[in-house]
């Protein structure tokens, strides 16, 4: 299939710590078509960022990928040498990090930090060409070209985040990972940035992986989402399907905890308990201890695995009850 840009299959990764192995990513599979936006949602610590880092092969030194494959444009990323990875990074896949405040080196000018990536991937470009391209990118994200000559501390948070998006676009990647790009910003700026990302994505026909804990933002941004809990995907499908017909109890709980502006007034529900520590091996459904439906509909002893219940709509098997 040529239009399948990114294909992740059975990816498992754990961190090797002094207290034992932390299973951050457990048997995750998903795929992103070109031009599609894919959302990854889940609460803090569920392994979203670990997935993002693994896609770029930038995971910390103590992480171990036990199995799985990441194919970008048909090319396997796991096991590539550092030099080959360098060519893939930014050129094919780039990332907008969580904290834009700290994504810039404080002592180097913004323009130089973008040019440096372009020099690495397009060594044949002249300095003038690079500068023109940066001006163009800045215009696209609503920044003035003179920002190139500024240092990071001279910009506001929103400007820095826009510049980070320009940076992510600088080497014409096929896919961009946006890892909570708006968490540090206020709501107004957040909205502007989201629009910017969307606009740019449509304009350039990029694929986008949008990672957030905010299901409302995800709904606005993506065509397809995956809900993560404790390192596994518990439900995945077209965004519309998931919002209209959530099947897994965790997805429903997540939706119930978000206020809606237009719908009728209702009390927000919250879940009791905390997500499990990933350091302990969990048998069966990892959500079972907090699951409101564990007594009635679910079969929490079933080992987690996704089943397709509607076209393209996958859900964890334990929510399907005893068969």
């Amino acid at each position: 299939m040529p239009d399948l840009l990114l294909e992740v299959k059975n990816l498992s990764m754990h961190y090797d710590t002094l207290d034992g192995n932390v299973d951050a990513v457990k048997d995750i599979s998903f795929s992103v078509k070109s031009g599609e936006s894919f959302g990854l949602v889940g609460e803090s610590g569920c392994g979203k960022t670990s997935v993002a880092m693994t896609l770029l092969q930038l995971q910390p030194d103590n992480s171990v990928i036990t199995e799985g494959s990441i194919k970008l444009d048909g090319k396997e990323l796991i096991g590539l040498s550092e030099n080959d990875l360098r060519k893939v990074r930014w050129d094919s896949i780039s990332i907008v990090f969580q904290g834009a405040m700290n994504a810039w080196n404080p002592v180097i000018k913004i323009g130089e930090q973008i040019r440096e990536a372009m020099r690495e991937h397009y060594p044949e470009n002249s300095k003038q060409e690079n500068i023109e391209k940066i001006d163009e990118l800045f215009k696209m994200v609503g920044l003035d070209g003179s920002i190139s000559e500024r240092f990071p501390h001279e910009l506001s948070g929103g400007m820095k985040q826009r510049a980070v998006i320009a940076l992510a676009l600088s080497c014409d990647p096929k896919i961009i990972i946006a890892d909570e790009p708006t968490t540090a910003l206020d709501v107004v700026i957040q909205d502007q940035i989201l629009n910017e990302i969307k606009k740019v994505q449509d304009l350039l026909g990029l694929s986008l992986i949008y990672i957030s804990h905010d299901i409302a933002v995800i709904a606005e941004m993506t065509d397809k989402i995956a809900v993560m809990y404790a390192g596994s995907i518990v439900e995945m499908g077209p965004t519309k399907d998931i919002f209209e017909n959530p099947v897994h109890s965790y997805t429903r709980a997540l939706l119930d905890s978000t206020p809606s502006i237009r719908g009728e007034k209702r009390k927000l529900k919250s879940l009791d308990g905390e997500p499990p520590s990933l350091i302990n091996k969990i048998d069966g459904c990892s959500f079972a201890p907090r699951c409101p439906d564990r007594e009635t509909k679910c079969n929490p002893t079933e080992h987690m695995r996704l089943v397709e219940i509607a076209p393209d709509h996958f859900v964890d098997i334990c929510s399907q009850g005893k068969q």
Binding site: L56, L58, E82, L85, R86, K87, V88, R89, W90, D91, S94, I95, F97, G99, N102, A103, W104, N105, P106, V107, I108, E116, A117, E120, H121, L167
Partner: peptide
């Protein structure tokens, strides 16, 4: 440990350049 070192790595810069230009300079 800073974030911009991660950015530099994600940009695909060479190890030497990350060491000298980003880490050592700061």
């Amino acid at each position: 440990k800073d974030d911009y070192i991660l950015t530099a790595r994600a940009k695909g810069l060479s190890q030497k350049r990350i060491r000298d230009r980003h880490a050592a300079r700061t």
